[in-house]
Design a protein around this nucleic acid. Structure first.
Lengths: 335, 335
DNA sequence: TTGTAAGCGTTATCAA
DNA sequence: TTGATAACGCTTACAA
């Protein structure tokens, strides 16, 4: 029983009035008589009238859809950001087109093209780890589709809108905490150089070391590529340092997990315990027997919310405030 | 520099021909002369012409969007199904509108309404644990929007299209395996009664017990509500049984995790080891030191793929095959 | 207070 | 081989 949705045309016919009158009546236009308004609205309700989105889209040049590009949904951190985006979108009558780049630049470019074809009103993106050029996003913006970066900022960060957590400060908090616990050999597993946020976390680490008068040891910083193999290779190298670290600050909690897993497998020797702190505070930690010492909660839900809230402002032309850089404060969660 | 996308009208003007000719030329309509075709296609490429989706949508009454409703994205199992859906959709020029019910029936109904308003071409859904009436989905179908259930079938399963894994057979495999390992006191943490798949898993458990001549003990089966508290209460009860179980088959791996966590906290006494098998084979297991004995891999990626592939068939009217019930085989993964 | 008509971008029918 | 035109459903000057 495939019956098509009622249109204002049908309503107009049944009521023997014109479509424009119906349209105005439905929108409570002041120029329409009270009785007509009531008749129209009553029938509209009866017929369960819902305006045709395609027509609105075509008319207003506005799809009421926002696109989201993120690395992986299986990453619990990103999955949590989606909750914030989705809830806020639903409240504001936007639909969300969520996609995954799987950390591939090629795929990310495809997705951008698809978003443009789909005529989304705006895009929220956490760039892939392979992304170094931002041409594809700039093209979006040139086509009038605003972009809000989140979690991972683009290279020329000041020139773009983004929402993130204050990882610089957070890294400092983590290092302070470790030092307060008596650690002095504190390593850092840094994220890929392509990501600006890797530098921010590193800078925070460096600043805190300096502030606490702990000499920087280049051997204690390793760049990781976000793969398990990469992390485990880095850990191996850390263990071979003359005076190995007793604590490690990691780019993200998945790195912590890979590192701890590596150590567990290595621990035939009289390996000293190494403490870990990472970014993310993943929900899955609740299931772990042996948790990392602490974790930096980046408030992903709120990052998502702020990102879409900013994006909707941009879409609705509230651009007078200029470029927005939003940095949410992280919380250090001790497990 | 907000420039709007080129239209066939613009192309027509620049070439001094009519829009209908342009339209046909772009689609390689046989009635168009070779030279015109080439001129049009060349210019279209130059201008980077892309057909306006809103117009197509309005014209063809087809949005090329499919809606997905699932309980939670943070659940790694569902997140994996999304990958299968997304990849297949992109390959077939569909966009995916993914949403979460968070296991709430109220939210699920809202989402269905939103999907209908958004005029998605079809819906893939794993119903919430609260869903007992299917009226909202039937309404979708009555409005001409096909629905494919996945993972969790609706009550009158035979009457609807669905894709799932063969949990009945899988539960049997798990029980067989446990028995082969010497277990005879095998408990089952059953899923909520609202979900048909709970019954299927339970039935498979029962069948395997019978087949192996193990007497059924009602004390060894507890219904859980998919909350941590519910699972842990059930485990507590299992421990108080006269002859407690030595192994437990769980509705899903998250239940296994909650149960194991409970046991770890309890284990002050000389608690005998209890083995667990659950459905899901979650990726996060790789990070666990102490994994469950085994897990049933439901091949979520393929479930997603099959679900959307079936849905696209339904959308394109390939309905002559009748109602489809697809049950993928599970693999027992021993950890 | 209500109606007419153009237009959003496309396709498709029919005529030229 | 090409073009004019209506239609998809809606909004909005402008006219009545």
């Amino acid at each position: 029983m495939k019956r098509s949705a009622p249109t204002i045309k049908e309503i107009a016919q049944k009521l023997n009035i014109s479509v424009s009158t119906v349209s105005k009546a439905i929108h409570n236009h002041p120029s329409i008589g009270l009785t007509t308004k009531e008749r129209v609205q009553k029938l509209a309700k009866e017929l369960n009238y819902v305006p045709n989105q395609a027509a609105l889209h075509l008319k207003h040049q506005k799809s009421s859809v926002i696109g989201v590009i993120l690395p992986k949904l299986i990453d619990q951190f990103f999955s949590l950001t989606v909750n914030g985006i989705e809830d806020y979108a639903l409240k504001n009558n936007y639909n969300v087109f969520t996609t995954q780049s799987h950390e591939s630049l090629t795929r990310e470019k495809e997705l951008v093209a698809i978003m443009q074809r789909a005529q989304v009103d705006g895009v929220i993106v956490a760039v892939s780890k392979e992304t170094t050029s931002y041409d594809h996003f700039n093209a979006l913006e040139n086509a009038g589709i605003p972009v809000v970066y989140f979690v991972r900022q683009p290279k020329e960060a000041m020139l773009h809108n983004w929402v993130s957590s204050n990882v610089y400060e957070a890294a400092g908090k983590a290092v302070d905490f470790l030092i307060a616990q008596g650690h002095t050999r504190i390593a850092h597993l840094k994220g890929p150089d392509s990501l600006l946020t890797s530098k921010h976390r590193y800078d925070g680490y460096m600043e805190a070391l300096g502030r606490n008068n702990i000499a920087y040891d280049a051997d204690l910083v390793k760049i990781c590529d976000l793969t398990k193999a990469g992390t485990q290779k880095a850990m191996k190298e850390l263990l071979q340092v003359d005076e190995p670290p007793t604590a490690v600050l990691c780019f993200k909690d998945y790195m912590v997990l890979d590192a701890m897993q590596f150590l567990r497998k290595q621990s035939q020797t009289n390996q000293k315990k190494i403490e870990f702190i990472g970014f993310g505070n993943l929900p899955m930690f609740e299931y772990f027997d042996e948790k990392p010492l602490a974790s930096l909660d980046e408030r992903p839900y709120e990052i998502g919310e702020k990102a879409i809230s900013l994006l909707l402002k941009l879409i609705n032309g509230a651009t007078e405030e200029g470029i927005q850089n939003i940095n949410l404060e992280c919380k250090l969660i001790v497990h």
